[in-house]
């Protein structure tokens, strides 16, 4: 693979750096939230990642940049967690914590309309799912039931429940990206 360094021209270089940060901020933050289950911790670690990006920018390779950012994010998150979570029991508690318990901060007035629109889109997407898939999603997300509990209550194999969830996720992800 041919590697290209970051642009040499300063203005162009700064613009490229800003654009990269803009592009990757959301997905990196989601990845970090998945690892840390804590929004403030994810924010802090994301800052560290971007600090390393700025420091390493002169030798940064755009082609492999995304993977590099996620690698740095992973190691920074693990370091952060080691500092914060020394006990195995605490780690087990963290792993058992659904990521959506780290609820986002309240949206400002301007963002509220957009938020309402996004919520409506999700509800429409849910309503479009086949009933069996929708039931699994709703039980898991809104009734806090584990997949095993859902399988037991529906009287079907766990694999069936997980397959319904997988299919629902694919459809929801596609619909929500449109």
């Amino acid at each position: 693979m041919q590697h290209h360094p970051a642009p040499v021209d300063l203005a162009e270089s700064n613009a490229a750096l800003a654009e990269l940060i803009r592009q990757e901020r959301g997905s990196l933050h989601q990845f970090l939230l998945g690892l840390l289950r804590d929004r403030a911790a994810a924010d802090d670690v994301l800052q560290q990642v971007f600090l390393k990006l700025v420091e390493g920018w002169p030798s940064f390779r755009l082609e492999t940049g995304r993977s590099w950012l996620f690698t740095v994010a992973y190691h920074e998150a693990m370091d952060h967690r080691r500092r914060q979570t020394r006990l195995d029991a605490a780690l087990a508690e963290l792993w058992a914590r659904p990521v959506w318990q780290a609820r986002p901060p309240p949206a400002g007035a301007d963002a509220e309309a957009i938020r309402r629109e996004a919520i409506d889109a999700v509800r429409r997407a849910l309503a479009d799912l086949p009933a069996a898939q929708r039931e699994v999603v709703e039980r898991r997300m809104y009734h806090n039931q584990t997949f095993a509990t859902i399988a037991a209550e529906l009287g079907c194999p766990l694999g069936t429940v997980l397959t319904r969830m997988r299919l629902a996720m694919k459809v929801l992800t596609r619909l929500l990206e449109e």
Binding site: Y74, V137, T173
Partner: peptide
């Protein structure tokens, strides 16, 4: 996740989906 980029991307997607569902 240490070196599997598709797995990392999957975590990001899962978080994004879970958050949107939770918000709704």
């Amino acid at each position: 996740l240490a070196d599997d980029q598709p797995a990392r991307e999957s975590v990001g997607r899962a978080v994004a989906l879970a958050e949107r569902l939770a918000e709704a």
